[in-house]
């Protein structure tokens, strides 16, 4: 390493002009902050090594699930005339929202601990922008993974829903809305827990409960009584039912609005909580 002081003598620019009368920049508005910060998180899209695992993992899982549980389509509780992949894929899309949301929370705790968040908090920007920026970027990234899952489902596994393209787009919308709202739930938890290793097990348990105590992989009618009751009220089941109806072509305004409404309520509750505890944590 050559010395910096030597270079000062060579007439390089001064690092700091003495005694600036006013800050050099006049600050940025909240929309600029959000777009710059979400753009930051979306930069990973340029890097195949960062994107590929997120795309491939759900496709791999879909391969496993579609083969292992295929036999349920032969059981009496299964809707007749429906192929298992048409039953599974909408649900699979919706359930991938849980791990996408958990990823948001884990990424936030990681950044809270590596100092970049402290840098943002010591700058003249709204603390909420940091979280909103992350939530927008992570939802978009989840959308990319989900789109890849839909395309792979159609090309490789013969996903051909009665609802057609619009039905599939509706599934995607529901899944992205759920991933957006669960992202806020997990960010609220991370702002509160602060440590990734504290968040991971809670996220894991939540994932397990939401996922398997639902109608994602098997019809609820085939479950034991107590589990059936829970699976019916599980918001995940609501979103999955809506996604399935959409892909089966049974669309009315209520089908789409109910799960989107649930997501909006979840965000309305958890976003202020997340921002508030984020502001307080150092």
């Amino acid at each position: 390493m050559s010395t910096v002081t030597e270079q000062a003598a060579e007439g390089r620019p001064a690092i700091d002009e003495p005694g600036p009368a006013a800050p050099r920049y006049q600050g940025s508005g909240i929309l600029r902050q959000i777009s710059v910060l979400s753009g930051r998180s979306l930069r990973v899209l340029r890097d195949p090594a960062m994107v590929l695992p997120g795309v491939l993992e759900p496709i791999l899982m879909l391969t496993v699930f579609s083969q292992v549980f295929k036999s349920v389509s032969q059981t009496s509780a299964f809707p007749p005339g429906v192929s298992y992949i048409d039953f599974l894929l909408p649900a699979f899309l919706v359930t991938s929202a849980v791990s996408a949301g958990l990823k948001s929370g884990v990424a936030l705790t990681t950044e809270m601990n590596n100092g970049i968040i402290a840098r943002f908090r010591s700058m003249p920007i709204h603390t909420g922008s940091v979280l909103v920026g992350r939530s927008i970027a992570d939802t978009a990234l989840a959308g990319v993974n989900m789109l890849a899952l839909l395309v792979a489902g159609a090309l490789v596994f013969g996903f051909d829903p009665a609802g057609g393209f619009l039905g599939a787009a509706g599934c995607l919308a529901i899944a992205m809305a759920l991933s957006w709202s669960l992202g806020w739930v997990f960010m609220a938890m991370s702002a509160w827990l602060r440590r990734p290793e504290a968040l991971q097990p809670i996220g894991g348990i939540l994932n397990l409960v939401l996922l398997f105590a639902s109608n994602a992989f098997v019809p609820v009618e085939g479950l034991p009584g107590w589990l059936r009751t829970f699976a019916s009220v599980n918001p995940m089941s609501q979103a999955i039912t809506a996604a399935r109806d959409l892909s089966m072509g049974e669309v009315d305004a209520g089908t789409l609005l109910a799960p989107l409404g649930i997501c909006a309520v979840i965000v309305a509750i958890t976003a202020p909580l997340a921002i508030r505890s984020f502001r307080r944590s150092a």
Partner: peptide, 9 residues
């Protein structure tokens, strides 16, 4: 660049 943009540049 990120920092400068956030500061308003």
């Amino acid at each position: 660049i990120l920092i400068a943009r956030l500061l308003g540049a």
